[in-house]
């Protein structure tokens, strides 16, 4: 069954869209990340214009994050003060990100910047996660079993001024590191059309030293607002939010997430993270290959005034 998307201005198979939503929802439910970093490349792959894929994906992420955060809220895994500090940085970041997006779109380089950001960040996160989970798996196998780690290490980040207590996160730190992390993630969210969970989560765990469960809940909480802001700004400045596309993706992802959560609960954490690392690196590899392989056409055509 084909459906014509009013903003993307093309006809797409409904089941392909619901299927993509379902697949990403399944993976995000299983791994506890938003999955936007996988969805945008998939949408571009099926021929959705990159700008529309990014704008729409921001909008769709609002819905999936709300759905996910409700469950975490009930279990008390959302650190609201921490979320608000991250959000303050995030809003500034996404505002500048959308402006940057517009400039790059005018220069005709937006597709490359999106692809390049993906390769860089997916590559980094994939390698980090792969190394970390690989070590954890080896540690678990070693006789004597897993050693208990310190709650968190102290480094220069903890010496910054304007300290504040974050009770849920069991932290007493300066507001600058979360502000900075929020800003960078907001910037990337706007340019790449992702919630930024895949960057935010490792940064909060490894840089801030927050407990993992609170990290996921808090990250999702602030992602709602950052992506809502990004989607709104994309709609206003670029008119690239396709609500029809967002709705179809959401139907799939909500269903997939329920299944994914159940499957994920049965698998051990390190193996889950190792699998996610492989997936992330595979996507990065594919995007990198596309950047260096000879394109089908030596010219790019953009209609409309730029």
């Amino acid at each position: 069954m084909q459906i014509y998307l009013p903003i993307a201005e093309m006809s797409v198979n409904v089941f392909v869209l619901i299927g993509i939503g379902g697949l990403i929802g399944f993976l995000s439910g299983m791994f506890g990340v938003g999955g936007g970093f996988l969805m945008t490349p998939l949408l571009i792959f099926i021929g959705i214009p990159p700008a529309v894929a990014v704008g729409t994906q921001s909008n769709q992420t609002v819905a999936t994050s709300v759905a996910a955060v409700i469950a975490h809220w009930r279990r008390g895994n959302v650190d609201v003060p921490m979320g608000l500090v991250l959000l303050a940085g995030g809003l500034a970041g996404s505002g500048i990100g959308v402006l940057l997006f517009r400039l790059l779109k005018q220069a005709g380089q937006i597709d490359l910047v999106i692809a390049f950001s993906y390769v860089l960040f997916l590559g980094l996160v994939g390698v980090m996660m792969g190394v970390e989970s690989g070590r954890a798996i080896l540690r678990a196998r070693r006789p004597g079993g897993a050693q208990r780690r310190k709650l968190h290490k102290h480094h220069w980040i903890h010496g910054l001024p304007l300290k504040r207590r974050f009770r849920r996160s069991k932290l007493y730190i300066s507001v600058f590191p979360p502000l900075g992390i929020g800003f960078i993630v907001g910037l990337l969210a706007a340019i790449m059309g992702v919630g930024g969970g895949f960057i935010m989560v490792p940064a909060m765990i490894y840089l801030l030293g927050m407990p993992t469960l609170v990290v996921i809940g808090t990250s999702l909480f602030q992602v709602i607002f950052v992506t809502a802001n990004a989607a709104f700004l994309h709609a206003v400045t670029n008119q690239t939010v396709d609500v029809m596309l967002a709705a179809l993706l959401f139907i799939g992802s909500v269903t997939g997430a329920q299944l994914g959560t159940r499957v994920g609960a049965k698998l051990p954490g390190e193996q889950l993270r190792a699998m996610l690392a492989v997936l992330v690196l595979a996507v990065a590899g594919k995007l990198f290959y596309d950047m260096i392989s000879t394109p089908d056409s030596m010219f790019e055509i953009t209609w409309g005034d730029v």
Binding site: V62, T64, V66, A67, V69, I70, I224, A228, Q258
Partner: peptide, 8 residues
């Protein structure tokens, strides 16, 4: 999108 998040 925000309201849709409450659907599940």
């Amino acid at each position: 999108a925000f309201l849709a998040g409450f659907l599940p």
